Simulated scan of single mutants.
Amino acid sequence: MTNHSQKKFSRRRIMKFMALGVTIPIFDILMNHVHASKASKESMQYRDEPNGKEQCNNCMQFIPGKTPEAPGGCRVVEGSINPQGWCVAYTRK
């Protein structure tokens, strides 16, 4: 008697696994590169003062610090960001 419940590995199935095994590391490398590439403060004309009512703490790109007054981060600009700062990437929440 043979056991038909065991899955058979066909060439097609093996090729799919191989393609997936190659694709996942490449995708991971590309995604890390996209997240790692931020613009410099100089290129984004970043400054520590607001531009009128426009300031980092009410920008969609701002990543808040531990407290409202603490420096945070930015999805676009590299480095530490002052909540009262401003740059040309400002996008109102």
Rank of each mutant, 00 (worst) to 15 (best):
F9W: 06
G72E: 10
K53A: 02
H35L: 12
K93H: 04
C74N: 02
N58V: 15
S5M: 11
G52W: 01
V88I: 05
T91D: 11
E49N: 08
N32F: 08
I14G: 06
R13N: 05
G73R: 01
F17K: 12
I81Y: 00
I14Y: 13
F17G: 15
T67G: 02
A39H: 03
H35D: 15
C59G: 06
R75D: 05
M15G: 09
I24L: 15
V88H: 03
R92A: 10
S10P: 04
I26S: 04
F62Q: 11
R12A: 13
E42S: 11
R11Q: 07
C74G: 02
Q45R: 07
Q55Y: 11
H4I: 11
G52T: 11
L30P: 03
K38T: 09
V34Y: 05
F27A: 12
I26F: 14
G72Q: 14
T91S: 12
K41R: 05
W86E: 05
N57E: 13
F9Q: 07
D48L: 01
Q45C: 00
C56R: 02
E49F: 06
Y90G: 03
I14S: 12
P71M: 12
S43F: 10
G21I: 03
E42R: 07
E69R: 12
M18P: 00
Q45A: 02
C87E: 09
G72P: 10
R92C: 06
I29L: 11
P83Y: 00
P50A: 09
A89I: 00
K8T: 14
R11E: 10
A70P: 15
A36E: 08
M44P: 04
V34W: 06
R92I: 11
I81D: 00
S40T: 14
V34E: 00
V77C: 14
N32M: 15
F62E: 07
W86K: 06
M44S: 10
T2I: 01
E54K: 12
K7F: 03
I63Q: 05
N82D: 05
C87T: 15
R12Q: 09
H35Y: 12
K66D: 13
S43R: 06
G79P: 00
N32V: 02
V88L: 07
R11S: 08
Q84P: 00
S5E: 14
G21M: 04
E69T: 15
V34S: 03
Y90V: 01
S43V: 13
N58I: 15
S80C: 07
V77L: 13
A89Q: 08
D28W: 10
I81G: 03
G52E: 03
M44R: 11
S37G: 06
N32R: 15
F9I: 13
S80N: 09
R12P: 11
D48H: 01
P50M: 04
S5G: 14
A70C: 15
S43W: 07
R12I: 11
E54I: 07
S80T: 06
N57L: 13
H4L: 13
Q84I: 00
G85H: 02
C59A: 08
S80W: 06
R11K: 08
